[in-house]
Amino acid sequence: MLEQDTSGSEVWEAESLLLEQGKPYVVEAPSGRGKTSLLSVIYGIRTDYQGLVYLDDRDLSSFSSKEWSKIRKNKLSFIFQGLELFDELTAMENIQLKNRITAYHSDERIMEMARLLGIDPFLQRKAGILSFGQQQRVAIIRALCQPFNFLLADECFSHMDRENSLTAYKLIREECEAREAGLILTSLNETGLPNIDHSLKL
């Protein structure tokens, strides 16, 4: 249940909003409408909001730093718009930074996903020298290397071509279904992504 109290939109203006686990949501809006803010509030990074946000049955503001760490390892995963990769680590090390604390995927599965997204030749390169589109795919794989109930994807296809976007989207949906997890995907414009039944206008 997401309750917000700010300027006019389907999300911010609603008396209350329920996002259900297992369903995919797309949040569409032009820049500056608060897409990233919405995800950041859910992920506990931003606390400067009015109203109440519940995860399962608990108010987000009641979580301790320890609980947030657990949530971010087991319940919520985030593909950041700014990617948040470590330039000095290789693409593979960036992915393993997450996978080693969760031990969720085998190295083989990671390689398979990389191959699927077409970044397997770059895995041993420093993340800092990859193109933004390649980095986006690294960030996607990293976000998939953990259990979660919701995946928060913030404009994660912005620097990929249509074909790559669809492949990545397919992978994301597969991984979500495997976990019976929900997906909240933000996008600047009409994505035309298949199998989205819940679209929210900010």
Binding site: Y43, R72, E84, L97, I101, R142
Partner: peptide, 8 residues
């Protein structure tokens, strides 16, 4: 960044 990735 590490904190965002779930590191305490």
């Amino acid at each position: 960044r590490l904190n965002k990735l779930g590191f305490h």
